[in-house]
Amino acid sequence: MVEVLFRFFVLGCMSFGGPVAHIGYFQREFVDKRKWLDEEKFSSALSLCQFLPGPASSQLGMFIGYHRAGYLGAIAAFVGFTFPSFALLTAAAIYSAHLGDANWLTLLIAAAKLLAVVVVADAIYTMARKFISDVVTAAVCILSAVWILWQTGLVAQLMPILVAGLLGWLFIRKPKSDAVVQKPTSLTQTLVLFGLFAALLVLPAMFSAPIANLFNHFYQAGSFVFGGGHVVLPLLQPLIGDDVSGNVLVEGYAAAQLVPGPMFTIASFVGASMDGVHPVVGSLVATIAIFLPGALLLFAALPVWQAVMNHHKFSGSVVLINAAVVGLLVAAFYQPVWISAVHSVSDILAVVVGFAILRKYNLSVFWLLAGMLMYVIGKTIV
Rank of each mutant, 00 (worst) to 15 (best):
V304Q: 11
W367G: 10
K360C: 04
L298V: 09
L284K: 00
N322H: 15
L328M: 15
V318G: 04
L292Q: 02
V330S: 08
V281G: 01
L302Q: 09
K360Y: 08
A307K: 04
S283R: 02
R359D: 05
A301N: 05
V337Q: 06
A272N: 01
S315Q: 13
A255K: 03
F264V: 03
M263C: 12
H312M: 05
L302I: 10
F314N: 06
I348T: 14
A286T: 04
K313T: 13
I348R: 12
P303L: 08
V326Y: 08
Q306G: 03
G316V: 07
L302G: 05
I266S: 01
P262I: 10
G294N: 04
A301Q: 08
A300P: 02
G271R: 03
S273Y: 01
P260E: 07
V259L: 01
V285L: 01
L258G: 06
V337T: 15
S364H: 13
L296E: 00
V326A: 06
M274V: 13
Q335C: 09
F291Y: 08
I357G: 05
V270T: 01
A286H: 04
L297T: 05
W338Y: 15
S340N: 15
Q335A: 14
V280Q: 00
A289T: 07
G276A: 01
F264M: 00
L292F: 07
V280F: 02
R359F: 08
D347Y: 13
V352Q: 08
V330L: 15
I290E: 02
V342C: 12
L363N: 05
L258N: 06
A356D: 06
Y361H: 09
V285K: 00
L349H: 11
A332T: 14
G354P: 12
A356S: 14
S268Y: 00
I290N: 04
H311D: 12
A323K: 07
G261I: 03
F291W: 07
